[in-house]
Amino acid sequence: MPRMNAARKHPVEFTLNGRTVRAEVENRMLLSDLLRHEIGLTGTHVGCEHGVCGACTVQIDGRPARACLTLAQQVRGSDVRTVEALAPDPAVLSPLQAAFRRHHGLQCGFCTPGILMSLDALLRERPDADREDIREHLSGHLCRCTGYATIVEAALAAAEEQRKEETTNA
């Protein structure tokens, strides 16, 4: 990694939701700020900026990560996915998103993008995830509205649907 200094901006290039992006940022800029305020993708939310609430969770090279604890420069060359990439089409929800709507897995929706990114990664990696797996992965997220039960139900329904689809396709 090239040597950087605080006095000027430095280029960073990475893949964001399938497209290459380039930006010039100070080395102290957070990934969450770059996504939201420089690039303008405001779907990733910032709830605590100290890594506890999970609202800012994005996927970096397929793994969930806190955008508020990641410097923009750290994603150089990485593949970053945000909530904006989940729906297959602007007017169509992904099975996971649709399950959240069906099961009332959200109220204010502020924590939801981070939760979706964690669950999306989990269900991709572990299609057989059960209730306990889902609860464990959700434990890195704070939601103040729902009491979590409907989130767990939505995730279970999405996992079930995904498994059915794979059986059908096989």
């Binding site: 405001t42 910032v46 998103q97 939801t112």
Partner: peptide, 16 residues
């Protein structure tokens, strides 16, 4: 809910 499609796709419009 009418609200959900936007909120689930990152199209919510919160103050920030």
């Amino acid at each position: 809910r009418i609200e959900d499609a936007g909120l689930l796709t990152g199209r919510g419009r919160y103050i920030d």
